[in-house]
Design a protein around this nucleic acid. Structure first.
Lengths: 187, 187
DNA sequence: GACCTTCTAAACTGATCGGTCTATAAGATA
DNA sequence: TATCTTATAGACCGATCAGTTTAGAAGGTC
């Protein structure tokens, strides 16, 4: 029998896309094996804890990616450049709105109860990192917090509407609007 | 055997809450029977088409409610009063952010494919109705469209974050911000 | 080559899935 | 009271679920 060898990072990325398309409950093991071409043997070898472990590792993986690519630059880099980079990173990560936020989707059903700490931490840190950069760029704390919250709210809402309306333009339009709002606050 | 008699509108409301909590795939028939106290016999009596028919009727029900309570007033009533009423209706319908938007949640996983027309129509009409009221209140069409879209995006994003963060205040804060933005555009 | 670890393939299991069916309870009509 | 309609209860069905197990393929180490 033909044997394809995968490594765990590949497995995580492949399974993540299935969860993203079908949701946690909607992604059955047979969907996952069919779409990823990983056999059950492989999946349970990499993730002995089954679906729950897959989802936990995927979320940890996403979290690490955001920390490296967005949160740390916001926290440690030159604030205006890091914010500019955040908009680009956001647009490319979410494929201009054609790819949903798995963490946000998990927040909406009872999957949230399984992973509440990870979900909460992801959004909390995003808002805090952006607010911190805005403060470093010269805004008062309260205004920075409000604007940061508004930005993350807008990104999540735009992802929902992009998907709901099947509209490829609303995400970019929303990002531009949010970006301009931050820039005019910093001007 | 004790026999409890339900009427169909009760069944719709009860099942809706289960979908809202668990999502479409997460809400199994046994969850639904356990939480609603409706037996399978009753459920399939009211909804011969099973889960799919339940979800379709629930969405139609929500849609009708929004049309009556929000979209029609926006389309036909005095625009400023209708917009003011929209914010109140939104806050109370979503229980200040403790209740999610079922239509928005369905948009995020493959449930969307089953109900895409209903999902798309709901958001499209909401944005159109609000934009129409803004035009009637004196705004240029393009600005009205942008502001309406921003409002609905913000509401959906705030629902996601309210749930993700377990934060009871973010929804109200976002509604207030969006409301003020519309008011200053109209001033 | 012998051995060992890592990984894959798929048959298999018991539980749960969505959905069907039968029996009957309760009210309406007469 | 007899009958008819509507709605409820829950046993039952085949399919699919998540997860386990067995067997062996591939590659590294000696």
């Amino acid at each position: 029998m033909a044997r394809t060898v995968f490594e765990k990072p590949d497995a995580i990325a492949l399974v993540a896309e299935v969860f993203r398309e079908l949701g946690y409950e909607g992604a059955s093991m047979s969907h996952i094996t069919a779409r990823t071409k990983l056999s059950k043997g492989s999946l349970y070898h990499f993730f002995p804890g089954g679906k729950e472990e897959m989802a936990a590792e995927i979320m940890a993986n996403i979290d690490t990616w955001f920390v490296m690519e967005m949160f740390r630059p916001l926290e440690e880099g030159e604030p205006r450049a890091a914010i500019a980079r955040m908009w680009e990173t956001t647009d490319s990560y979410f494929r201009s709105g054609r790819r949903i936020c798995l963490i946000g989707a998990f927040a909406l059903d009872e999957t949230r109860d399984r992973f509440s700490a990870a979900i909460q931490g992801y959004f909390y840190r995003w808002i805090e990192a952006l607010a911190g950069a805005l403060v470093k760029a010269g805004l008062p704390g309260a205004e920075a917090k409000t604007l940061a919250e508004e930005a993350v709210v807008g990104i999540q809402g735009a992802l929902t509407l992009a998907r709901a309306l099947g509209d490829d333009t609303i995400f970019g339009r929303t990002l531009t609007r949010l970006k301009e709002r931050l820039e005019s606050a910093l001007a």
